[in-house]
Design a protein around this nucleic acid. Sequence first.
DNA 1: TAGTTTACCTGACTCAAGTCAGATAATTCT
DNA 2: AGAATTATCTGACTTGAGTCAGGTAAACTA
Lengths: 293, 293
Amino acid sequence: MDNSQIIQIRSFSRAVTRRVGALDESYLRRGRPLGEARLLFEIGPEGAGLGALRSRLGLDSGYLSRMLRSLEAQGLVSVEKLDGDARSRRAMLTEKGRAEHAAYDALSDELANSILEPLSAAARDRLVGAMAEVERLLAAASIAVEEEAADTEEAQQCLTQYFNELAERFEEGFDPGKGNATTESDFIPPRGSFVIARLDGNPVGCGALRMIDAETAEIKRMWVAPSARGLGVASRMLRKLEAISASFGAKTVCLDTNRSLKEAQSLYKRQGYDEIARFNDNPYADHWFAKRL
Amino acid sequence: MDNSQIIQIRSFSRAVTRRVGALDESYLRRGRPLGEARLLFEIGPEGAGLGALRSRLGLDSGYLSRMLRSLEAQGLVSVEKLDGDARSRRAMLTEKGRAEHAAYDALSDELANSILEPLSAAARDRLVGAMAEVERLLAAASIAVEEEAADTEEAQQCLTQYFNELAERFEEGFDPGKGNATTESDFIPPRGSFVIARLDGNPVGCGALRMIDAETAEIKRMWVAPSARGLGVASRMLRKLEAISASFGAKTVCLDTNRSLKEAQSLYKRQGYDEIARFNDNPYADHWFAKRL
DNA sequence: TAGTTTACCTGACTCAAGTCAGATAATTCT
DNA sequence: AGAATTATCTGACTTGAGTCAGGTAAACTA
């Protein structure tokens, strides 16, 4: 690993916690413990269930309860029984609580503004652009690719989005039923596998493989959500699927793709796949690739 | 102010404290209170005077003392009388303390590495580049331009660097004495003024003005340290000097510049200065500018 | 040389943050 | 119906972080 990159990251983290970290401390500035301020902020104008608050803020139930009593005593929050379940409760901001919430909001805006204010318009654009880039790439770095079952609701959501996109992009349209001998039951180990890429728990991509014979795996269903493209998610999924194929005994991985999926073709070439002759009768395939593991 | 920029900054700060903030919490991971860990880290392999530690970490003297006793008890730190002054003391890491310091260092590296690891080489470059840009522009945003006396040691250091640079850049060389009727005593209010731009307390630029008659101010000594160029420091100093000029009753601000200082000329034009006829006999001046306030 | 200042230390405190072991009431399971 | 589970609450605790009011010895100042 490039050492100068590590040094830059450490330096960045120091600089940001020093300069932008002040933004967090602004919560403190309204004469309230940080914990209560965060809680007030997290409850928000719409209110929130106590369970959700506990898990989002990572609080002990006793601790949460005590802080809520304190906020109630300050007249900022009311806790009401609501749902069908009379055990679970919901915290809501009172009138005064909403005003307080708005004040924190204004403070945060003000602090963000104080960062922009000294800069020229051009420098502001550059700063905001670079922040967006950092945020996006930090998100990319926290994407995890894991083997999962293909029949869960989330897997199905990925596949639906994948099929919708194919229908939109293929010149000839796309009908999932047509000439498609593969089903999700092919993606169950050890005859196949299914991976999902997740960002903060939410699926942002999927990919599948099935063994077409003892030494050959076929990659299918490679899809990345539009919001996560350009971050290397596809190649990470591909590498994961190749590793799984190898563990199933595959010596070769092959796949097909449509002429309209240009990015996919260049990805496969970049990852060491060579174009080969047609090896199946998929009516939507125009190019066929293979790679020896 | 552009609201989408403020939203981006707030979103950035949330993302960064969540993802990189973990880097700070790594200090906690060695089963030691954060305060002690920070202190250990700040003492560093070379050791540090207690006064320096107090000011750098912003600690109460009693608090520091207690933490040092605790680190001593753990065998990580020794505190010795050293300098001439037998009251002041110096904290040094023991052998064990240095090992602990190195362990924190390795932990930070590891965390930085864990951010890079999932990314492709191209994405790493982009992330690190964007981090450098953010860091640089956050620094720029924290630069403060203030009116100060021109005869302090720091002001003199700025001017020395300014003159050295002129000597390097002017084709004809530069001799501060030659044809230079202006001295620092001209930069004392209300006949003149001097501003210094500081980043974290360190001077990174200066500029001066003197009134050449009741309604005309002249800008002199505009200089920005190479490390702080391209961040809009010069235009901020210029605006500050114009505001001061106006408060002294000036209706017009004028200045001269050498043909080799291209950035300066474009800055003045950008800021609304028009080129005018020669108004002084400065042998190093090739262009003359003026702006009505 | 006596008084003041400085650099550090000690003890006694406060307050925030968080943990843990039950208690209580509603709900679900058998 | 009775037992187990769940969502929340209460009380008793620990630990960290930090403040404040002195105290001591060395160094400076008039």
